[in-house]
Amino acid sequence: MSFNWESTVFTLIAFIILYILLNKYAFKPLFSVMEKRKELVMGQLRDAEDNRKQASELLNEQKAALQEARKDAYEIIEQAKSTGSKQADDLIATAKSESNRLKDEAIRDIESEKNKAVAALRSQVSGMSVMIASKIIEKQIDEKSQEQLVGQYLKEVGDKA
């Protein structure tokens, strides 16, 4: 082994120059790129985390909205059911009152018709009885009795006057 101090000096010079050149032209840009990539990855991780949070929030919101919608739908159905039954009841009540009214009207009509018929019948019966009576009287009364009758009636009229 021989030690050559000039070689040591050359080594120092070569190493220092190499260090400076590498640092300036290779490592600095490389480190900055690695740093950038690190930041990029960190940023993307953060974004992913944010997105995940947002997604879960949205999911919860959607779940709540779905629940709300379900509740609304149930309420609407319930309401519809109650309105339906109420309407049916109304209809039935209206129909009942209508039918009652019609019945009453019919009864009244029947009554009045009956009365009219009775009245008509009564007047006809009286006319007819008069006619019958006059026919019978025409046949039965002779001159003498007729005179007697006239005289009676005249007497009656005279009494009253």
Partner: peptide, 26 residues
């Protein structure tokens, strides 16, 4: 030694330069 120091330094430097020639983040 002078030759080999220069050769070694050159190889290292060229290797490093080639590696950082088209630096890309992604």
């Amino acid at each position: 030694i002078v030759t080999m120091l220069i050769v070694t330094s050159l190889i290292v430097f060229i290797l490093a330069r080639l590696a950082v020639r088209n630096l890309s983040v992604e």
